[in-house]
Write a protein that binds this DNA or RNA. Sequence first.
DNA 1: TCTTATTTTAAACATGCGTTTAACTCAGTT
DNA 2: AACTGAGTTAAACGCATGTTTAAAATAAGA
Lengths: 211, 211
Amino acid sequence: MVKTKDKIILAAEKLFSEHGFEQTSLRQITSEADVNLASVNYHFGSKKSLIQAVMSRYQSVFMPALDEQLSRLAEHETYSTTDVLACITAPLIALRQVRIDGPVIYLRLLGFAYSEIQGHLRKFTMTHFGHVVQRFFEMIQQANPHLSRKTLFWRLHFSLGAMLFAQVSGQALREIALADFGEETQAEETFLKLLPFVAAGIAADDPESQI
Amino acid sequence: MVKTKDKIILAAEKLFSEHGFEQTSLRQITSEADVNLASVNYHFGSKKSLIQAVMSRYQSVFMPALDEQLSRLAEHETYSTTDVLACITAPLIALRQVRIDGPVIYLRLLGFAYSEIQGHLRKFTMTHFGHVVQRFFEMIQQANPHLSRKTLFWRLHFSLGAMLFAQVSGQALREIALADFGEETQAEETFLKLLPFVAAGIAADDPESQI
DNA sequence: TCTTATTTTAAACATGCGTTTAACTCAGTT
DNA sequence: AACTGAGTTAAACGCATGTTTAAAATAAGA
C-alpha cells in the first residue's frame, strides 16, 4: 500500500514539471494523488515546503553525482569546455533511480524554479550545494583561461537560460518542430543537441579581450 | 494633463517588466498609476487586452524596423550569422522612441511573455509579425548552409532562451555578479555580451552531420 | 480491550484576484 | 437651463487560492 505522503510527492512532481509551481494548485495535486486536500499541509506543512521536498529529492541525487564526475575530471591535467559540460550527463541519467522519467522531470522542474520567481529555491540550492556549483564554475574557467571571469559568468547563465527555456517550452517547441518539418524530437534529444551549442558559445572568443 | 489610459499603460509596462504578467495584479497597476481599479476594464476591456496593448506598443515599432534591417542585409550576396543577429540591435535601440528605457523594458516583457504560459501572446505575435520571424529564420539558415533545419530550429530557440533568461533574471544576476567580483554590469551590456555567445553557438559544427 | 497517538476527512476561513454594477461627476451640446 | 454621454468612482460579486479547524476514523501500544 502506497503511503499518502508518497502519493502526494509523485503527483506534485508530475504536475509541477508540467505546469510550473505557481500554476499548480494544491487542489490539483491532491485530486491527482487521490488524497484529501488538507493532507498536504499535514505532511509537509506548506506548499513551499512541498516544493522544496520535491526539488530536494532530485538535487540530493544529482549534485553529489555531479561533484564526483567533476572530481574525476579534475585529476586530468587539462580538459575542455565540452569535457566539463559532459560531466552533467551521467548524473542526469542517474535520476532514473529516483523515477523512470527522472531526468526530464528534473530539468523541467529546474526550468520553472528559475523562471518563476522562486527565490527560496535558489537560496535552498546554493546553501546545500553551493560548493558543487562553484566547483563547476571554476573548472569551466580552467578550461577557458582566455576568458574573463565576468564573461564566463554571463555565458554560463546564457547557457543555463538556453537549457531551461528548451525544457520549459520543450513540449510546445517539439510540437512546432513536428508541424514545421514533420520530424519528431525526443525530450532527451533536446539536451544532447544543447551541448555543442553551449560548448561553442562558452568557448567563443571574447570581443572585449580583442580590443 | 496625462490621460488615465496613458497612466495605466506606463504603470503596466513598468510592473509587467519587473514582475511578469501574471504576477502583476490590476490593483498594483492602478495603485501605481494612481487611477481607479475599474478604469482598466473600462479603457482596455480586460487584463488580457491590456497585456496585448502593452506588447503591441513595442512590437509595432520593433518588428517593422527589424524587417527593414533584414531587407538591407538580404541585398548582400553573402552574410554571416553575426550579420543577421546584428540586425536586431538598431531596432532595439529604436525603442527609445517609445520610452526612454524601451529596449530593456521590451526584452524583459518578451522574456515573461515566453516564460509564462502566455499562449495568446505567442499567437498574437505570429499572426501579426509571423513573416518577419520567418524571414529572420531563413536568413540565419542562409548564413549556415551546413546546418539542418532541425538543428537550426533548436539552436535559435536555445538562443532565444539565453536572451530571455538573461533579461528576466537580469537584475538578480547583475547583483550576484556585483557581489562576486565587484563589477557593475549595465542592463544593455548584457545584450551585447550575448551576441558573440549566440553567434558561436548557432554556427557551431553539427555533430549529427559529422557521422 | 481499553487507551492513546496518528492520520484522514469535510467544512470553513481569510485573502486576493479579475470583473461588474450602479451611482456620480462634469464638460460639451442643444 | 436641461440634456447627453464619456469618464470616474466606491462597492460588491463570484471565484480560486493556501491554510486552519475540529471531529471522525484508523492504527499502535499497554
